[in-house]
């Protein structure tokens, strides 16, 4: 699997979350590199900040922790050859099953922390911290 490399690529994405918040919209790096079409994405978020990409690779959410601002969207894309889901522990969101290359987006409207996991492989967990504007 080449997805390990992708994790390395994605870590800088997390690091530039603050610059994303300043208005520069980046496409999810690994997804465009793979030429996958993002599906199941709602209309572009109204917030000034662009979406934050989380990639699911090697049964891991990468980055595992992301910080967004209220109104910002996180897009999860499954890069594995096995389906996964993205389910909030507090049930505030739940994706359909994501096959290889499919994505799920959720726009966070309330400040706080939301833990989430894959309901098929519950060892896979992640967290979104939503900062007030």
């Amino acid at each position: 699997m080449h997805s390990r490399l992708m994790i390395a690529v994605l870590i800088p994405v997390a690091a530039v979350t603050t610059s994303l918040a300043s208005g520069r919209a980046h496409p999810p790096v690994a997804a465009s590199a793979r030429g996958k079409t993002l599906s199941a994405r709602p209309a572009a978020p109204t917030a000034a900040a662009g979406p934050v990409a989380v990639h699911i690779s090697n049964f891991t959410f990468g980055p595992k922790m992301v910080t967004v601002k209220v109104g910002q969207t996180v897009t999860w894309t499954n890069d594995d050859d096995i389906p996964h889901t993205v389910v909030a522990t507090d049930k505030s969101f739940r994706s359909k099953v994501l096959d290889t290359g499919q994505s799920f987006s959720f726009t966070f409207t309330k400040p706080g922390q939301v833990a989430y996991f894959c309901s098929l492989h519950p060892m896979m967990t992640g967290k979104v911290t939503v900062a007030a504007r």
């Binding site: 522990t89 833990a115 989430y116 996991f117 309901s119 098929l120 519950p122 060892m123 967990t125």
Partner: peptide, 11 residues
């Protein structure tokens, strides 16, 4: 059946 209602962080 051990695949229903799986808990975060669990098996």
């Amino acid at each position: 059946v051990n695949v229903a209602d799986l808990k975060p962080g669990g098996m």
